[in-house]
Design a protein around this nucleic acid. Structure first.
Lengths: 373, 373
DNA sequence: CTGTTAGCGCGTTCAC
DNA sequence: GTGAACGCGCTAACAG
């Protein structure tokens, strides 16, 4: 085992330089003067509100072009009482899933006038702080929470910020939300393993009762797993339920425990792809070959899953974000407030880390076999 | 080889619900009245500008508390002519590195009054569009570009938007930037392999001359590699230079090619961790054991690297973001415009995918050996 | 120290 | 159709 080696190199260069900013901002007044009209008219052509005669409209357009005029957003916001920005609160560290949902949100927003402002909630301190001081209608027109299930007090505050709220990858009866059915996902994963003939199926996840957990996905996936096994007429084997903290080492330790059991599982369902990768890594270190001797299925279908040929459950992350903003924008525009609760489809992606259970419970590898001869 | 199986389940629930928003916004005038003072005074205590007598200050504070008053950002922005928001333009898909830099930026911003608004540039179309319509001083007080090296025309536009600009993970002589030394990183990686006795070292990266490339990191890492080899008195073996497009399959194909050479490399330096993982995956599929028969080193030290015990080059992503905003905020406040160009340190993280080169050039594995007896 | 007032740039009545 | 006022909520400059 190596220790880290560290090589450091640091450098800072400083050189003066003449950057000059052109701050010649044209206002609506300038445009009006240039076009020989009143500011009201300019405003009208900008907002395409009421009718303006074709000729004057043209004159205004030309003036706008000449002066490179662009309306001042702050003034617009103040005047119309809407901020034209939507807020997104999300735990940054759920890197892969978070980013794809955000991409979905962004993809729709970039075709609108809306700004996207970001708030980070990585820990309980940040969470407390942001809920203590939630952005209101003075800052945003709508709010999206990603992977954040509000507690009751938090829900209460959210309902009072004065703008619509949409939950993505989280559930609460009083809010609009877009999510995937993690229970069904867990079921799907377990069913796949059952279909391959496995009966000794373990489940590896983060701690289920962690109060710091941001959502219930681990719990839901476990529930799905339990349903599938029960439906198949099987009992849930407690020693096969392994929960641990975040990180590679914890998942590896759990795997070693599972595979050291008197009667080790022949398949492991990991609650997310990262954990699945740790499971595979630990299993192979112990000499278990995947998938011949151990099937492993993950959850999420992050990019790396393709690199490693990991069988997994894919959820439509991008679409989740997309649907979320759509919902929010509708809510912002609509007068009537209805609650849409949307479940997006999931799918099983079979690659090469799951295989039919071995006919005989032999754990003799080819290598062992050859060695012994 | 399996095909994907797809199981779909979809559901949409809709139920009416009485969400009512409290839109009782208190203005500065209300506070002034409540406290029995003028608006100017309220403004003073809010902005902690000039001195206010302790008693009146207290009265105002109480009034603010009672009315749950919070200043309207749009009005503040308009009035002081500053937006109190900083913009970040970044290619979202560079998921891991992007997210950590963003976290660094966010971590500093959350202690300030600044909003963080995000712009996505995933492809040339988006790039063209955003540079066509760059946010100016009416929208932001400062701009950060992540992993985006401006072309000359782009640089010209950036210099004219009226607010300071900072580049992160990119270089341009006319801009402030914070980056790591990719050349030194490439050198470090190659030196590590040389130190282990390798002489047949391949380099796998994205296409070097891709006009769509967002920055020069691939090229720089290659340059570092070349320097290291040259310094060691070795020639650069062209067949060992493998460039391909993004994605797992491309990297795997390149690896297969390299390892099928008459004289295959004993070590591969991948320009990023994802590629390194693909390299390992392909190598092991071909029966090459890592690190015994093939050493692989990556670049970035993304989370998964720890899971897979990947030797790699770590760059201070978070710090890069942090330093970037620091720089920007200073630029925003300072009158004199100087250019700071900062290089942050990198480090070699040795895990378990690199090992000393084998004494004899044998590529016979244990399995082969046993099989043949 | 503190109240008053004039903009900030734009949307939106209102009369014309 | 169109121009001129007023107000959005706040900051800053000015008197007192």
């Amino acid at each position: 085992m190596y220790q880290w080696n560290r090589f450091h190199l640091e450098e800072t260069t400083l050189c003066t330089q003449g950057m000059q900013y052109n701050v010649a901002k044209a206002t609506i007044r300038d445009v009006a003067k240039q076009a020989g009209v009143g500011v009201g008219t300019v405003s009208r052509v900008i907002n395409a509100s009421s009718a303006v005669s074709p000729e004057t409209r043209q004159r205004v357009l030309v003036a706008i072009e000449e002066l490179d005029y662009r309306p001042n957003p702050s003034a617009q916001r103040l005047s119309r009482g809407r901020t034209h920005t939507i807020g997104v609160i999300a735990p940054f560290f759920i890197a892969d899933s978070y980013i794809h949902r955000l991409r979905g949100i962004q993809s729709l927003l970039e075709n609108t006038e809306y700004d996207l402002v970001l708030f980070n909630v990585e820990n309980q301190t940040q969470r407390r702080r942001i809920f203590q001081n939630l952005p209101g209608s003075e800052r945003i027109d709508g709010l999206i929470l990603i992977s954040l299930t509000p507690t009751e007090p938090e829900a209460h505050k959210l309902l009072n910020i004065g703008v619509p709220v949409v939950l993505i990858d989280a559930f609460h009866p009083h809010f609009n939300y877009v999510t995937v059915d993690d229970v069904a996902g867990g079921e799907l994963a377990a069913q796949h393993l059952l279909y391959l003939g496995h009966t000794k199926i373990a489940f590896v996840s983060d701690f289920i009762d962690d109060p710091d957990a941001f959502n219930s996905s681990n719990r839901d996936r476990l529930a799905g797993y339990q349903i599938a096994l029960t439906d198949a007429g099987m009992a849930i084997d407690v020693p096969y339920l392994a929960h641990g903290q975040l990180g590679a080492q914890s998942a590896k330790a759990l795997t070693r425990q599972l595979l050291s059991l008197q009667d080790p599982p022949t398949a492991i369902f990991a609650a997310n792809d990262l954990k699945a990768i740790a499971v595979i890594s630990a299993a192979e270190e112990m000499g278990f070959h995947v998938p011949d001797e151990l099937s492993v299925i993950g959850y999420d279908d992050i990019e790396i899953a393709d690199y490693l040929n990991l069988t997994t459950i894919r959820q439509p992350l991008f679409d989740t974000g997309l649907e979320g903003v759509k919902l929010l924008l509708n809510l912002i525009d609509d007068v009537e407030k209805t609650t849409y609760q949307t479940l997006l489809p999931i799918e099983l992606v079979i690659r090469q880390t799951t295989a039919p259970v071995r006919a005989h419970n032999s754990s003799v590898t080819e290598l062992d076999y050859l060695r012994s001869h």
